[in-house]
Structures are given as C-alpha cells and as structure tokens.
Amino acid sequence: MIKLNNIQKAYHIGKSEFKVLKGINAHIKEGEFVSIMGSSGSGKSTLLNVLGILDNYDSGEYYLNGTLVKNLSQTQAAHLRNKFLGFVFQSFNLLSFKNAMENVALPLYYQKVSRKERNKLALEYLDKVGLKDWAHHLPSELSGGQKQRVAIARALIGKPKVIFADEPTGALDSTTSLEVMDLFKGINAQGITLVVVTHENDISKMTDRIIRLKDGLIVTEEQETTIINQVILNK
C-alpha cells in the first residue's frame, strides 16, 4: 500500500537547512496497523504529513497504492486525499461552526454526494462511533474524546484505504485513549490500513508493527530488538 524509497526532507529556516528526514525506506502493506514512534522532534509528524500528501518531500520516491506520489498538482493531491486517505489529528481539526454531523459529512461534499445522502451517511458513521445523539452539537459542546470520535467518523466516511493519525490520543486521558484505540482496532479489522504516530508505548503496543524514528532515520531491526530488550530489562 505504501512504499518509501530513500525519502528526504529538509526545512529551510532563513539560509540554513535543517534535515528532518534523512533517507526513509519503509513498506507498509495493505491492512496493516502500524505505529510510528520516536522522541519529540524526531520527524514523526513530518513523515506522516508526507505520507498523507499534506506536505511534499525533497527527494526519494513515495508510492501510494502503486502510484508515484511526486510533484502532484494540488488538485491531483486533493483527489488522492479525498479518495484514498483519512486523517485524525491530535487537535481534532473540526470546523467549529459546523455541528458533528456536518463535520462528518464534509469529505462527501468534496465527493459530490448530495446533501441528503451525506447527512444520512454521517449519522450512520456517528452511530458507529457511538455519537448518534450528539449529531447536532457543535464541537465546542463536545468532550475531547467525543471530538476525536467525530474526527474518526469523518476520516471513515470517505471509505479511505489508509487512515493517518498524528498523536490521536495526545490530548486525551488514558481511558478515552483506550476507547479510541479500540475504535482503531475495529476499523483495522475491516481492512483499512492504519498509520498512527505516537510517543506512548501503551498506544504503540496495541498496533501490529512499530516503526521507530531516530535522527531522521528508521532504526533497524537489530537496533529495534535491543531497544525492546532494554525496555524489557528496565521493567
């Protein structure tokens, strides 16, 4: 589903260049539930944004579902995001002036689904995340966990192949975090590929595979084993 060949990306601050991704190689198969871990500033979000075509990269190749994602026009990128991808953000990113149902329905607006149809579907998806009764509430009237569930319903409604989540539980307490992860597991069980960025071990433990980032590179398998051993030893 996702193939990365030597992806590099640098930020330019004034005249100086700051390399964040220094050559990422990775392969995420269809239906996988992967977490990306690493310390703060290691480039997790940068990588996820590249994967989600929310940002571009400098060199390397990124294949999404077999197509090379490089130098796409904004319109092409928009179509790919709309058809293939769903997003869940740490800060929810709901539109404050739209109620839960309208927020969930928004991706379908850009798929030219009729208003009646997309509101009906939005209610179904809200039901799936247990928020049917909150359909007509504004985001400001919802708790953090509820907001994130609305965001998940919104990510799901476009029937994406991959969902990217950047610290989806970062703003939630541990109980709600677990609820969200349960939702993700259910989604993954339906065959949707999931990539979750997190720095919490509890969260990454619930995923099938962990990709560790360090200094802009993916830590190799052996290194990973030693890290895991260290974790076990520390316990």
Partner: peptide
C-alpha cells in the same frame, strides 16, 4: 487547511 485535508481542490 482542514478542507484541503478532506479533499477540497484549490
């Protein structure tokens, strides 16, 4: 930004 993430074209 949000709309674009959800698939809005320019």
């Amino acid at each position: 930004g949000i709309r674009k993430a959800l698939g809005a074209t320019p």
